[in-house]
Nucleic acid binder design. Structure first.
Lengths: 144, 144
DNA sequence: AATGAAATGATTGCACC
DNA sequence: GGTGCAATCATTTCATT
């Protein structure tokens, strides 16, 4: 991981569709040298995935919320994790330290779907004793 | 946005490096037809960006935290937003409804950097009256 | 909108430094 | 690790349906 790898990563993050030929011009290295570096960054796992960012609004997902969850007993965690992994509306799930045990980032069409997710999916999980929802009004920064 | 576009989006999200030729085989459409559909999905803005997911651990960013922020008066919001936009460690910043005004997702090397960010950057912003930090212990799901 | 075929452009493999 | 060149593979263009 030298200066040039950092430059390549910056260019790929900005636009993963950039050609090796274009990167080659910017980093002053031959095309095979650039391809080889990208291959190695993938092999070492530093580049985890090539993906696309979609416009959630256009997908009809107008409501983002953070839902904090408290789990009563450790034996209920496996069931909770399974529910969360299967729920398409859960974008993120983090185990956290503090008053709550987990924080979820959820994307749904609107308040009706959010209510349904919280009361019919989340609260039905054994051990889920308490939740606290923060509705997102707007997002001014959202990177990976 | 029909059935085929949805299929194409699913394939691209999974691996944006997939070739149009490979997509073409899976959706049973010719290569130019697939290219044209992808071009349109970009034009309409549904595909916002082609990008790469990096491994934060390998980048030395071992600590993720959610920081909730309360802002005293609305006139201080512009300064807060500028600070947040410029801070590289802030991955996300959402305006939220509830007891706090903003929630930030922060990635840093360790607790020292987190402390520095909160006390030297965030709390120096005029109007930031109260913060509440949730340290992430592990992440079991993290999509865009 | 979709197709096939030709032209163009990018990547890969390889011999060499 | 890096380069240049040739071979391979992918994408774009365009006439046609």
């Amino acid at each position: 991981m030298d200066r040039i790898d950092e430059q390549i990563l910056r260019l790929l993050r900005e636009n993963a569709q950039i050609t090796s030929s274009d990167i080659s011009k910017q980093v002053h290295l031959s095309v095979p040298a650039v391809s080889e570096r990208i291959r190695k960054l993938e092999d070492t796992g530093l580049i985890r995935q090539f993906t696309v960012k979609l416009d959630r609004e256009q997908l009809g997902l107008h409501l983002i919320a953070f839902v904090m969850v408290q789990i009563e007993k450790t034996e209920h965690i496996a069931g909770f994790r399974e529910t969360v992994m299967q729920a398409d509306c859960v974008l993120e799930c983090h185990h956290i330290a503090g008053a709550y045990d987990y924080v979820l980032k959820v994307a749904v069409k609107g308040t009706a779907d959010l209510e349904r997710f919280i009361s019919e999916t989340l609260k039905q999980v054994e051990g889920v004793s308490k939740t606290n929802t923060m509705i997102v009004l707007s997002s001014m920064k959202e990177e990976m």
